[in-house]
Design a protein around this nucleic acid. Structure first.
Lengths: 206, 206
DNA sequence: ATAAGTTAAACAAACGTTTAATTTAAACAA
DNA sequence: TTGTTTAAATTAAACGTTTGTTTAACTTAT
């Protein structure tokens, strides 16, 4: 995939607007105006509004697997690696939160004609790497056996997204007045909470 | 709020379509066709598409507080009540998942002119009841102190919604072929996973 | 000179809402 | 039970906008 500057500019403008107003809530004219280009350029470069979105998915979702492998291959103690994995996931999720939001919303839209196969394939790969890591920790006796591994990531991603989707509520409730303090909260408190949750779940005996 | 049969029929049709295709992805004509009524009836009964949505929120979100109080006032042991609270939340969430999905998506849409105040007020109340319960358990020495209480519900709701939004993925991954087996999975495995997560988090010592 | 980039204008289709006319249902008096 | 009145419910048609995409002309760079 080779994209020129203008294409990337369109993609990132579209990402912002799709995340803010939804796919159907964002018009091609809105994107082109915000990006400072002519309406026809979207069709010219991407073919259609749908294909623009598919291009955005590929543009944003690459190279996570590599980062994940890198963290695991450091061979730190299991609990430390677990913390690192969670921190990595949250960091990536937060950086690409807009695209993830669009995926979350459009993936469950039956009526949409968008190809999610590359996204699904990548997700499956990543989860099987994490699953292998947890099973290895179970064999080593560090993690307990009685855990629903497939739902582990649901808890990690789900907690982050619920925070992000209800940002307005938590801003109010936690008195996070400006963007920097939200960033700090995500990378400290929220990450710590999820790390503790996953560690507790994997080591807690009834 | 008194709604006649036809109004409820419109509301529930709209709920289904909004959840499937999004608010902007659902036209008033689509709703009226699916509900078997004339297009003008939506404006006639609700005033506008936006006000229809606000009516749906109130219609679905009521009386949770009552159920929550009822569970807590049974005065079972703390860990059992905790399980009951989680089970109650998941049951309610799952029953009203469509409306919750719409709220999640539209609440983070800056451009939308929808009144979320009654929803926010209710959410704040419910969370403060749960917060009080956890603090009481901490005083009793059953729950540990080192927990981010405000993020507890983010983990509960977030895990459920991540499962629901990625239903297609989990269906594939967990081989849940039909709707009954999904229902069973939600009320058994998923609920159990979240109960274990929250119990672990609230009792786990480093 | 050739191809890529960019533009304004036009296209049919779909959008939410309003209008004005008609049908239905309920209330009332004879 | 009847005919009449009144308001609510329902309808098809029309309103002005906005939608995604295409066209054909024009500009820029190679």
């Amino acid at each position: 995939m080779d994209l020129n500057e203008k294409q990337i500019q369109i993609l990132e403008t579209a990402e912002k607007l799709f995340a803010e107003n939804g796919f159907d809530g964002t018009s091609v004219r809105h994107i082109s105006k915000e990006a400072g280009i002519n309406v026809a350029m979207v069709s010219y470069y991407f073919g259609s509004k749908e294909k623009l979105l598919e291009t955005l998915f590929v543009y944003r979702m690459s190279d996570f697997r590599m980062e994940l492998d890198s963290v695991i291959s450091k061979n730190k103690p299991y609990l430390e690696t677990l913390d690192d994995i969670v921190a990595l996931i949250i960091r990536r999720l937060h950086r690409n939160r807009r695209t993830h939001k669009i995926i979350n919303f459009e993936f469950s839209n039956e009526n949409r004609q968008i190809d999610f196969n590359s996204y699904l394939e990548q997700k499956k790969e990543n989860l099987s790497v994490i699953e292998a890591f947890v099973k290895s920790g179970q064999k080593a006796g560090v993690f307990i056996k009685n855990v629903n591994i497939k739902l582990l990531t649901a808890t990690i991603l789900g907690t982050y997204f619920h925070f992000y989707y209800n940002k307005k509520y938590y801003q109010m409730s936690l008195k996070l007045d400006d963007n920097p303090s939200i960033e700090t909260y995500v990378h400290n408190d929220l990450t710590l909470h999820i790390q503790n949750t996953i560690k507790a779940l994997l080591t807690y005996e009834k």
